[in-house]
Computed example of a mutant assay.
Amino acid sequence: MANYTAADIKALREATGAGMMDVKKALDEADGDSVKATEILRIKGQKGVTKREGRTTSNGLVTAATDGGVGTLVEVLCETDFVAKAPRFIELADKVLAQAVKVGATDADSLLASTLEDGQTVQELLDEANATIGEKIEVKRLARIEGPTVVSYLHKTSPDLPAQIGVLFASEGGDDAVARDVAMHVAAFSPTVMTREEIDADVVENERRVAEATAREEGKPEAALPKIIEGRVNGYFKENVLLEQAFAKDPKKSVAKVLDEHGAAAKQFVRFRVGA
């Protein structure tokens, strides 16, 4: 019988992120030698990397960093929530974010192709983690924005998981407090655009057609249709356009109104939700 303890199993699991049965098998094969067991896990794990390429990654985390007028937001995905909350995975995501900031990456592809200090690329780092942890791991999205003021906000949808929603918000004027309030609003109300002008004209026209058809189905008077249609289209804007949404902390005011009262102007935002 291999010479190892429950503490050895725990230590190797924490170091590699691998499953318990895989760790026990590796320790058995290595006769309790944790260094050899780690190598066994890597070798066997690498054989399964290709097989895992088609798997679905619907769990993971978002992480962000801001430095002066630059913000970086990264989404790192895995297959299960068990791995998502493991220290090994969280440390990996932190390393990926640090590299994104260092090289000024603007998208996932450029980040994955960048080279770390040890000579391996970020993609190779993920493949190695894929091998030891035993799950498909990928950088799904990356965003980088700039502005006079850039703040980030990370939100946990479950207390035992890392952040699942991440926001970057760039503004000019005002202060960090109002900028952070707006970032928190974006996390909660998930606007899709900053202004109504950014919404495709075909989308607006379709909303108008739906509003008219619905009003007619409800038997609304013909004379009232234009006003009803316009009201419902404006309602669509208020649901999707950041500056027209009712502000989370004061629903009687729009986000635009709150920013204006603080002498601030919105410049850009981005919002990621894990798996969305």
Rank of each mutant, 00 (worst) to 15 (best):
D94T: 14
A18I: 08
V139P: 03
K10A: 11
D22I: 03
G60V: 07
K10W: 05
R88S: 14
S114A: 14
G119H: 04
A37C: 07
K85S: 04
M21V: 15
A15S: 15
R42I: 03
F89V: 06
T63I: 14
A93R: 05
V103W: 03
G104R: 04
A98L: 01
M20I: 15
A98T: 04
V35F: 10
G104H: 04
A15P: 10
A7K: 12
A15G: 13
R55V: 10
M21A: 06
L73A: 03
Y4P: 00
A7E: 15
L61N: 08
E75I: 02
V35N: 13
D67I: 09
K44V: 09
P87M: 01
A98P: 02
N130G: 10
V35Y: 08
T57V: 14
L27D: 00
Y4M: 00
E146G: 10
F89W: 01
G69D: 07
D33T: 13
E39R: 09
D107H: 12
E124F: 02
A65W: 09
T56D: 15
K25V: 13
L142Y: 09
T115F: 02
E117L: 08
A30E: 03
Q46D: 05
L126F: 07
S34Q: 15
V139Q: 06
L111R: 08
G104N: 07
R144T: 11
R13C: 08
T115Y: 01
L41S: 04
G119T: 07
A129C: 07
A105Q: 00
K44R: 14
V62D: 03
G147F: 07
D67L: 06
D31L: 11
G45Y: 02
G60L: 07
D109R: 02
R42W: 05
V74Y: 09
C78F: 06
R13V: 08
G147R: 01
Q120K: 15
I137V: 13
K95N: 14
A30T: 14
T121M: 00
L12C: 04
D8P: 00
E135C: 07
K44G: 15
